[in-house]
Amino acid sequence: MADSIEEVKKAKKLYMFIGTLLFFFTVITVMVATVEWLDFGDHGFDGVDATIGLCIAAFKASLVMLIFMHLNHERPLIYFVYILGLVMAFFCMWLIGWSKSDPIQFGNETYSDGFYDLSKPATEVHGHGAKEN
């Protein structure tokens, strides 16, 4: 931990630098989304843009965590607690996503709760399990 006065003084320069980096990468993210020659993948928003955007965000987030939140030199207990939280949040997203993308299938037809046939009047739609296209 940056406890002694010299270390704190040194750290202040680092904080300044990290802050600038964060500004810089924010601008990059916006440019990827708005400037046409930086639009990777297909025209307009697509998976490639999403990946780039989220990678930059993850990089910025790890800078904040490591430097501002001092996770670059912290006690093992803190890592344990925080990583446990991240792991559980990951399980939450991963397993929910997985169970959603694995619907029951009968032959070639897929049944799930995601799509309701709106082209018919409400009274003709029979509850859930409408055919997904």
Binding site: V81, Y82, G85, L86, M88, A89, C92, M93, I96, G97
Partner: peptide, 12 residues
């Protein structure tokens, strides 16, 4: 850590 799972739930 609990906030992480709170926002984890929202992001899911």
């Amino acid at each position: 850590a609990s906030e992480v799972t709170l926002f984890g739930g929202l992001f899911s």
